[in-house]
Write a protein that binds this DNA or RNA. Structure first.
Lengths: 131, 131
DNA sequence: GTCCCTGCAAATCCTTTGCACTCCT
DNA sequence: AGGAGTGCAAAGGATTTGCAGGGAC
């Protein structure tokens, strides 16, 4: 177990991620943080995000668009992904009991976590389409 | 709508994917297919896989390991991902009714599909660990 | 003959890494 | 001082793409 030292950059990354309702990619976060730390490097952003994921302070989301997104909310919840604009939204629906039950009974091995993504066209994009 | 022409390579890719119980990556498929078509190129494999996904004949799985996997089975089902060995297994559990219901009531936009991944350590890896 | 499909290689995109230097503790 | 953290740039891995030639119709 290695000792963790304070770093302004890491705090800024956490704060920045917490302040956002979307689920930014490392690069989006990098762009935001550059306003405060013009010299921060993308490598540092990646390193810290991965560190925070390991520590369990944030979650990494792989929704299938080829880039990883990050979520400050580590509580169990599902996600909605818009296929048009790529936005990821939190779903505030109940965690499915039957899915949890299935996880417990899974014959394939242990189940430590599970992810649920819904895919479709979000309300914003639907409106724009109707023009 | 562009016309589709027959291609031996595409048929071989489909056949190869159908014949496998695992959920191979493009590269794994490429390696397999090379036994039949020593000259096939990785680009062709990618192009055809993407084409088949667009046609709805196969599914692309992004489980978060950084590489895409492909599944010949397009019927709704969930997946189990082993964090140790990376294997993806089909779960033959029932589709959760409550999850389906939630999808229908989703306020964020349309829901065309959804994916569920369970993550843990598979039975094989658990056994090996106990040695 | 036309146009899709292929092999090849280069290009692109995202992410990780090596290194010298800086900043916590 | 010691070692974790940083910026930079190069490396790495996965996927896409441009192009000239080949094959289906």
């Amino acid at each position: 177990m290695k000792t963790l030292k304070y770093s302004r950059q890491r705090e800024s990354i956490k704060a920045c991620l917490m302040g956002r309702k979307d689920h930014p990619t490392a690069d989006a976060l990098y762009t935001s943080i550059r306003e405060q730390f013009p010299n921060i490097s993308l490598g540092t952003v990646y390193r810290n995000l991965n560190l925070l994921v390991e520590l369990g302070e944030i979650r990494k989301l792989s929704c299938g668009d080829g880039t990883d997104h990050f979520d400050y909310d580590t509580s169990p919840h599902y996600h909605y992904v818009c296929k048009k604009c790529g936005k990821i939204l939190d779903l505030d629906m109940e965690i499915s009991g039957s899915l949890e039950a299935a996880a417990r009974e899974c014959q394939k091995g242990t189940v430590e976590e599970h992810t649920v993504f819904f895919y479709g066209t979000c309300c914003n994009c639907l409106q724009e389409e109707s023009h």
